[in-house]
Simulated assay, not measured.
Amino acid sequence: MSETLLEINDLAVSFSTQGGEVQAVRGVSFAVAPGETVAIVGESGCGKSVTAQSIMRLVPEPPGRIKHGSIHLNGKDLAALSDKQMRSVRGKQIGMIFQDPMTSLNPTLTVGDQLTEGILTHENISKSEAEKKAVELLNLVGIANPQERLKLYPHQFSGGMRQRIMIAMALMCKPSLLIADEPTTALDVTIQAQIIDLFKEIQEKTGVAIIIITHDLGVVAQIADRINVMYAGEIVESGTVKEIFYKPQHPYTRGLLTSVPRLDGDRSQPLIPIAGTPPDLFSPPEGCAFTSRCKYAMEVCRAYDPAVTHLSDRHFTKCWLQDERAEKPF
């Protein structure tokens, strides 16, 4: 990777509760290059959204806090910035599309007011200039009659159109990085396909880098360049789309792939769910967090956390099965 836009190193985020400390993110490291699409996938509760919110510094403090680690955007450590300094980053340098377009927009404000708020905050332009940019963005995301639509309220749009408005809002200040948190979850399959095509088109036209957070591997296969697989607050495997889909090396990654239907495989084969439940992050296990659900688990897995094994320049995994002394089950 010749150039890095975003680089996260050893990020750990915890939440203090009456029951103790929840270690939601535990030592996450990854990078994003300009114009690249990186996916973060995993089950609910694995730390995907907390990682995204940490990049934007939106984790509420308290109860949350960044325990350690760095988040560098164009060489600037976001984890060390004050709230005031972060306000100049949010929207202008990083745009974010939050989960559930049905509730992310303010029902009491027109779409035009919500679209122009960010650019009026960050740039010294008039209201009419901001509205002109809003019209351009609504055109880009495929909303017809944009000039008239600026005057409407969110309830006057369908779910798919609200998601397009959210995308337009995130792009208003031309950020270099766009974070999309479950951008297709609340939409039907047809609208999902349209939104995926829209992301591709926007990336071609603007060159924005995208972090897409999802549990939908079908979405990932169509849009991502690289995939980070998260489990229990850690990245357990990372690689290109082809490496993850065709050469998965972590049992959890293989479990995710066998638990969802595939159009390019034998459809007569039954889906195989991952047995068990994720570990309690109040007190994460000493060894590999996936041990209790892994059919290949060994004694060493329970006692010691596996080291990172680099399988290629861009493919790595954390698993004791990669040790030269381990029997290779697949």
Results as ranks from 00 to 15, higher is better:
T108N: 13
R164T: 08
C294G: 11
I167E: 09
G118S: 11
I40R: 10
P60S: 03
P146Y: 04
P251D: 01
N228M: 14
L120G: 09
T258I: 15
S259V: 09
N106S: 06
E36D: 04
E327F: 09
A33T: 03
R325Q: 11
I212Y: 01
I196Y: 02
F30W: 13
F199C: 08
I244F: 12
K200V: 02
A24C: 11
M169E: 01
Q93Y: 12
I40Y: 03
P60R: 02
G265T: 12
Q156R: 10
G265K: 10
C301P: 04
T103P: 07
I274K: 06
H155T: 01
I97N: 09
C319Q: 01
R254I: 15
P279I: 08
A326G: 08
N228G: 13
D197A: 15
L256K: 09
D225S: 05
K247Y: 14
I167W: 06
V189G: 13
A130L: 07
P284W: 01
L178H: 10
A39L: 02
Y296S: 07
E182K: 07
F330H: 13
S14L: 11
Q322I: 12
P270E: 01
L81Y: 06
D313G: 10
K318G: 01
K48G: 06
L187A: 12
A130V: 12
V89E: 07
A168N: 10
A326K: 04
